[in-house]
């Protein structure tokens, strides 16, 4: 069905990972991390590969992937902006951040901009309550946000993308 496969290194890492967990099922999360790295994002084909590799049902993998917000999913833009919406951030104005981003990017929650750069979503606590409000862009935290910070961030990312695209 698919010709997706882990690279040799990835497979080695996976094998090593298995030794660290009591059973295969428990090693699913780190394996998905490897898969995310290997296949850029966790599309159904990738999930199916992982499921077959680990002897789990694809549905179980789907459940795990959709449970967590930090896996890169199919259709996610280059930059995944995850705005924390849990209590501290909410009190400190995460709603405004969200609304501002939504207006600036012209997309709603869970949507990706037409140029494929940004995906905006609202997530639960990202464990940075002391610096609320905050968002996570891909693997980076952007904390203590003001609306200007958000503008700067977007502008910077756009430039970065342009540069990256040229490179």
């Amino acid at each position: 069905m698919t010709d997706l496969a882990f690279s040799k290194d990835a497979m080695k890492e996976y094998e090593w990972m298995l030794t660290r967990y009591p059973n295969k099922e428990a090693a699913l999360l780190p394996t998905l991390r490897i898969a995310e790295r290997e296949f850029e994002n966790l599309d159904p084909a990738a999930m199916k590969y992982v499921a077959d590799l680990m002897g789990l049902s694809p549905a179980k993998v789907l459940g795990v992937v959709t449970f967590y917000t930090h896996y890169r999913r199919e259709g996610t833009g280059t930059y995944h902006l995850q705005v924390c919406s849990t209590l501290s951030c909410a009190l400190r104005g995460s709603e405004d951040v969200c609304a501002h981003l939504s207006a600036k990017l012209g997309v709603g929650l869970g949507e990706t901009t037409d140029d494929g750069l940004f995906t905006l979503s609202k997530v639960e606590c990202l464990a940075s309550c002391d610096t609320a409000p905050m968002l996570q862009c891909n693997d980076d935290y952007h904390e203590g946000l003001t609306l200007e910070d958000v503008d700067h961030l977007i502008d910077r990312l756009r430039e970065e993308a342009k540069a990256g695209g040229a490179a």
Binding site: S57, A59, K60, L62, G63, T66, F67, Y68, T69
Partner: peptide
């Protein structure tokens, strides 16, 4: 057969 799962959270 395990076709079903819970997707998403909360």
């Amino acid at each position: 057969t395990g076709e079903l799962c819970v997707v998403a959270r909360g």
